[in-house]
Simulated scan of single mutants.
Amino acid sequence: MTIPKAPIRVALVDDHTIVRRGVQSFLKAFEDIEIAGEAASGEEALKHIEEWLPDVMVVDLLMPGGIDGIETIKQVHAILPNTRIVVLTSYTEDTRVVSALRAGAIGYIRKEADPEILLDAIRVAARGQSLLDPTIASIVMQELLQGSKSGTKLTEREQEVLRQLAMGRTNPEIAVALVVSEETIKTHVGNILTKLQLAHRTQAVIYALKKGLISLDEIDLP
């Protein structure tokens, strides 16, 4: 008997009630999604985050109160490092985009995007992978060009694993492609993130773009 997978627990953090309710209504239509909780501010989200234990948190960047979206991301990432964070916002300014990704966000979607893109971003994030809105890709690459860690050397195999990561492939898929064990790939991924001082795979995608290891049309973009 096949045991069904548990639904993805999603928490919504946005100061606009109409946005939260709209997103919640949309997501509830899918059996693989469960709404774990919702909050109108970063403070409220942090108060309940350990109660909700979400797999994915969808958060706006600009919210009232002393804790904005970026600080909320930082604190949630520190409390629940396995919770994946997807930014859903109207802001595409350079500093906000980069700050959100550096704080620990794994996806970045504009509120103007099709709802299906948000759904894809949540599902992808739950697998530990990235989905970036195409409009921010150039912003991210420009930032990486200015803040390169080019002195770090990766082995040829690590470069190939990084390229596979940036293409959105899972560890098992990379293992099959490179004809090695999944455990070996896990080791390579850990070494890559450590050497490049990266927190997660979103940043690996950015690095691969900057280094020319992969082109934009090869990434899992909406």
Rank of each mutant, 00 (worst) to 15 (best):
L132N: 12
R9K: 15
I8S: 02
V124Q: 11
L193K: 12
L216I: 14
I219Q: 01
A39H: 04
R102Q: 15
V97M: 02
A45G: 07
A39F: 06
Q146D: 00
Q146I: 02
A177R: 12
A105R: 07
L118Y: 00
Q159S: 13
S25K: 05
A113P: 11
P115F: 05
M167D: 01
V56Y: 02
R21G: 01
G42W: 04
Q159C: 15
S150E: 14
P222R: 08
L80V: 09
D68E: 12
G65Y: 13
G65D: 05
I136N: 11
Q164W: 06
E156F: 03
I106G: 07
A100T: 04
H48C: 05
V97Q: 03
T202I: 03
V10Y: 09
V76Y: 01
L154K: 03
T17F: 10
E71M: 06
D94C: 10
T155A: 12
D94Q: 15
A29E: 06
V124M: 01
P4A: 13
V56I: 07
S41R: 14
A125Q: 02
D94F: 14
D55F: 03
P222D: 05
Q75T: 07
Q197L: 08
D94S: 15
E143K: 05
Q146N: 02
L178N: 12
L216K: 09
L12V: 01
A6E: 07
A166R: 09
E34L: 13
E71N: 09
Q203A: 10
R157H: 13
R127V: 10
A199R: 15
L118C: 03
V140I: 15
L144E: 11
